[in-house]
Design a protein around this nucleic acid. Structure first.
Lengths: 165, 165
DNA sequence: AATTGACATGTAATAATATTACCATTAAAT
DNA sequence: ATTTAATGGTAATATTATTACATGTCAATT
């Protein structure tokens, strides 16, 4: 053998497909997936559920990036802005987008136990909301459609109400 | 004349109808609209739009109630819990419920300029979300359906994007 | 190759939001 | 009257987020 496999944080060889795709998508828009942004996206992708900005920050700092909040918030905001991640307002956390590229409006199902997030296509929901709003004279700019509850895996093992939200 | 009018914070005589109704509703459920809670509800009702917990706290403190965050959060949580107020997660703020009593699921239209909140009946929206979630194996417990944008009054006077959210 | 200008990153300081823990008080039920 | 549960007060702290400003990077021109 001539070329050793690189162990990239215990994951696969080279950037995961999600990262590569993100990079391509961004370049096409004249945007750059810089090292902090790339690593931030990796962190979100590696996480088992939604994570907070300060969790992201701690990992970035551990990897040699800046250790002050703006470092994380800027990268997260960038990713959210460009459809690669989502911000979950019910729990003040972030998660990688499950369907990057495809422009879509999603509703989020947030498990209050494991914090995993399922992303529902919700164009129709949003459309109804926008229309109802319009009928009320309100011009919608952005929406948050979120539900918290129990994911399939966590149902049954529900110990009354851990981490209610 | 025998009985002087009471000037209750520059408002009307005695408790406003919303307060009276809230009191009746709560008593019927064996709950109490205590002084802090009552005043908190008044504060929300007097506000021109959604206000933050710390704004509420400052007013409570000015009225002689406790000045530590739990005082406000407890009262606000109680009101939200019992359908007299809503918490808006997009902007970390609270607003009095427009339709207390009637159990309903609402969607909120939050004006990013004046912070006024319109409450849409959204039983159908929520129902769709709950069903889509169910189909995905997710058991919904609570939802947040919020939109931010411009209310009828603030459209037109839009100076690019004040207070974007 | 040097210069410029736009974008990106880093840090310090602070603001804004929210919770935990613990004690005192009040109201209601026995 | 005594007990119990609910409520309110405070201190301390945790968590989330922003502002302001300096530095650095990069690519497009001169």
């Amino acid at each position: 053998m001539s070329k050793p496999l690189e162990s990239d944080h215990g994951a696969q060889v080279g950037p995961g497909p999600a990262i590569s795709r993100a990079e391509v998508q961004l370049r096409a828009q004249g945007l750059r997936l810089t090292p902090v942004r790339r690593r931030t996206l990796e962190i979100l992708l590696e996480a088992s559920g939604a994570i907070g900005a300060y969790d992201v920050l701690a990992r970035l700092a551990a990897d040699g990036f800046g250790s002050q909040p703006p470092v994380a918030y800027r990268a997260l905001d960038f990713l959210v802005e460009h459809g690669l991640a989502h911000r979950l307002r019910r729990i003040n956390a972030f998660t990688a987008c499950s369907h990057p590229g495809e422009t879509h409006h999603a509703a989020f199902l947030i498990c209050r136990i494991c914090r995993r997030v399922d992303e529902l296509h919700a164009g129709h929901l949003r459309q109804m909301l926008v229309q109802d709003a319009h009928a009320a004279g309100f011009a919608v700019e952005r929406t948050s459609l979120e539900a918290s509850g129990l994911c399939a895996d966590c149902q049954g093992q529900d110990v009354s109400d851990e981490g209610v939200e």
